[in-house]
């Protein structure tokens, strides 16, 4: 299990979701992915994408103008 970070700053949705989708394909079950976004829409879309695909959202933070979402990858249903 390893930790990864994805910089999705200055991307408008759905690009952060698309980046997360591609990154998730390269990760293993139980890996965590920290996604940093500036589009506040990511707060709704990345969790929705996770729910659809069976991944879990461990944490969401709103710091300054950035949204940081930490996801735990569930590979079976990816």
């Amino acid at each position: 299990m390893s930790e990864h970070t994805l910089d999705a700053r200055n991307l408008l949705c759905p690009l952060p979701v698309i980046r997360v989708q591609s990154k998730a394909q390269t990760l293993a079950d139980g890996d965590t992915l920290k996604v940093i976004c500036t589009d506040p829409g990511a707060l709704s879309d990345i969790p929705a994408w996770c729910r659809i695909n069976g991944h879990s959202v461990l944490d969401t933070q709103n710091i300054d103008k950035e949204v940081i979402i930490t996801i735990k990858i569930a590979k079976d249903s990816a």
């Binding site: 949705c13 759905p14 690009l15 979701v17 698309i18 989708q21 506040p40 829409g41 707060l43 709704s44 879309d45 929705a48 994408w49 729910r51 659809i52 695909n53």
Partner: peptide, 22 residues
């Protein structure tokens, strides 16, 4: 307005997976 991607929202309502392709 709700800040959401409607395609993702629809997929969730339908209970189906959604593949967003660039």
């Amino acid at each position: 307005k709700p800040k959401r991607n409607n395609a993702l929202w629809v997929a969730e309502q339908l209970g189906i997976k959604l593949h967003i392709i660039d």
